[in-house]
Write a protein that binds this DNA or RNA. Structure first.
Lengths: 214, 214
DNA sequence: ACCTGAACACCGTTCAAGT
DNA sequence: ACCTGAACACCGTTCAAGT
């Protein structure tokens, strides 16, 4: 986790210690990386460009991140935190029908991914799955996923959902949502707009929801 | 430096045009790429190493492939052809229950992916989705997917599946299978063996199958 | 402690030149 | 026509040196 420093990038109007010290270079690099990735895609992203974007030599990044993957892990982590927030917001809808609540959560997931396709792809980056190398990332993933589990549990407690392992049903929603997002992002499925994409996903989910509800 | 150069399987046994002509360099590069990727992962794969593996200068690859992506597209295409074959084999099971037939197809998909995780990841490579750049790849994808559609149609004609658009139900199976594979390959889900992974997937699919069947 | 500047060992891509 | 050899413009990573 990042330790707060006296000076942040956007504060200090007449700061003078910019000579070679940056306020919070780690944070600034992540922010720059998120923006660069959103603009030009994860494949085009380079450490050097991120460093240049915050006005620093590329070697400086290694004082804060072990390597490029570590920076990407931080980017992914921020993504999962945003996803968790979005799902938390979904949980606040004034709706009591458990089935409809699952729809709202599933829609929130897909919406989030399609709003930031490049960032979402970093969240599934190939080098982010090395056994326990990025524990805070794993925690963020678990936290986001727990929102789905909590919602399934709610429906089960209300007696609306089938009596199967809660976690398994939550994974069922997750694989459907993620699989769908991939099909769209990889253009296996052409969609005219994000809204159409979300509605179509909800229609695909209907058989599962029928099976989910008792 | 002596590099062994395996002739392609169907090439002339005692061809002598090795001077600087290769029998079928395009094919050989794809084969070498598939093997390298399987051994060291898609991220570590380089054009130069593939060229070296077949005993040719890296620049030579450009006589046969426009760029690295074109070679990867050929690798992906071969993957989808293998997947289509596997699904075709699944369709031959002596089983008439439509629901069980879908299980067999879904299991075949996941098995295939987990047998060759690196190759499977190339099949979903980020640069393979550019509008119509690789038409033969797109055809191979469509062919593989059509096996799922055909199976859903079969069940619908038998009156076993719900009366929803055939394609939508097939996509439902696809997103579940692909989403699940991703969770496993990206270690979001830990599985002890491929067999356990397949069985677990089938259990996750049950709610969908309940909703699919009328 | 934090960053620079220069180096290193790689890449993908291009292209004149050979055969 | 097909391939080589050398070049080009990049990468990620490392590290002595500056402040």
């Amino acid at each position: 986790m990042l330790v707060s420093r006296p000076m942040t990038a956007r504060a200090a109007p007449n700061a003078k210690k910019r000579a070679y010290h940056h306020g919070d270079l780690a944070r600034a690099l992540v922010t720059a990386a998120v923006e660069l990735i959103a603009r030009r895609g994860p494949e085009a992203f380079t450490l050097r460009e991120a460093a240049a974007a915050v006005g620093v030599t590329h070697g400086a990044a290694y004082r804060h991140f072990e390597d490029k993957q570590a920076l990407l892990a931080a980017v992914a982590e921020e993504g999962y935190r945003g996803l968790a927030q979005r799902l938390a917001k979904a949980a606040l809808v004034p709706e009591n029908d458990p089935r409809q609540r699952i729809r709202v959560h599933a829609a929130a997931y897909v919406e989030f991914a399609l709003e930031r396709p490049a960032h979402y792809r970093v969240m599934w980056g190939p080098r982010l799955n090395e056994d326990g190398r990025f524990p805070t990332l794993e925690a963020a993933i678990a936290d986001a996923f727990s929102r789905l589990t909590a919602e399934i549990e709610r429906g089960q407690k209300a007696g609306a959902f089938r009596d199967a392992p809660t976690r398994d049903l939550a994974i069922g929603v997750w694989i459907a949502a993620h699989g769908y997002v991939e099909l769209v992002l990889r253009r296996r499925l052409k969609v005219k707009s994000a809204k159409v994409a979300v509605d179509y996903f909800l229609s695909l989910l209907e058989p599962f929801l029928d099976g989910l509800c008792v």
